[in-house]
Design a protein around this nucleic acid. Sequence first.
DNA 1: AATACGGGGCG
DNA 2: CGCCCAGTATT
Length: 356
Amino acid sequence: MQNSDFSSHLLKWYQYHKRPMPWRDEPDPYKIWISEIMLQQTRVDQATPYFRNFISLFPTVFELANADQQQVLKAWEGLGYYSRARNLHAAAKMVVQEYDGKLPESYTEIIKLKGIGPYTAAAVTSIAFNKPNAVVDGNVIRVLTRYFGIEDDTRSTKTRNKVQEFANKLIDYDRPGDFNQALMELGSEVCTPSNPDCENCPIQTGCVASKMAKTDIIPYKSPAKKKPHHTIGVGIIESKEGKLLIALRPENAMLGGLWEFPGGKQKENEPIQETVERELKEELGVEVKAYKELMSLKHTYSHFSITMHAWFCTLLSGTPKPRESQEVRWVTREELEQYPFPKANKMLTEKLIKEP
DNA sequence: AATACGGGGCG
DNA sequence: CGCCCAGTATT
């Protein structure tokens, strides 16, 4: 099968099977950019409502550049990998200041922007500017390792580079954006991780894995190491006026720029109430008494999991200081909705608002 | 080359 | 409950 056959079969299939997406068939490079950042490690269905809301709040790079970081993070709340939002915001300021509000059109320029790596640089320049740069994402890795019968560990950089070389050779120079999107669409709709639909695949005739019945062992991925589990205690301090204390996480930490109820890890053989009281002393410099549990919950982050116990606390002495956070603030239950919280803390705020 | 970095959906 | 997802930045 020639490259031109690969491309023509793929593009023909794409013409009939491409899913409508709110950023598709839009000539606006800004929207392509936003969509590609949101789609990093994120499914189309999950990103779509966020994309619509984000564009309505920040229709162009100028509104985004002029926005407060808190507004941007609120629009990202629940989507995860929050450094994407912080980097996107910083990059938008850069585009306005250094590029007159216009996204650079070359791979080597655009990849200098924060949050834009090899994948996104290729995606945006090919889709928005018709540049022949091949994308390599999880879908492309799966499709091409199967197609060419590459059995190497897809976790390694070497394998990823090998796939990139194949993609570079295959890319359609007339329609690079469609080619890239078609290959990814094929990966998510036909060449799926389990039970691929080879019978309806436009490039089945040339596919090694399909021919050799190896779609179940390609792509090969070395086992992931398992995530550690921690037990966390957090405190909800309520003032006499009924306000609750929340803290702003450090800028470059995990969940940076989001708010939370302060707390931390339980020590060996430590009662959970003591955990809460000790952590609030360390983080805020105050003496508190944890007197009643609000709720407990389990949550999984990217690289560890937690059981969180949230306790109502009485402030015994001291004034809360932001020792391990950027800022602390007293807010009403209603005001909680205005602040960006990560998922586990969002569970707490929702319960606090629903059941005061 | 290895690790940190969210959250949701699916078998 | 483990795996996967339109990856990037940092070390």
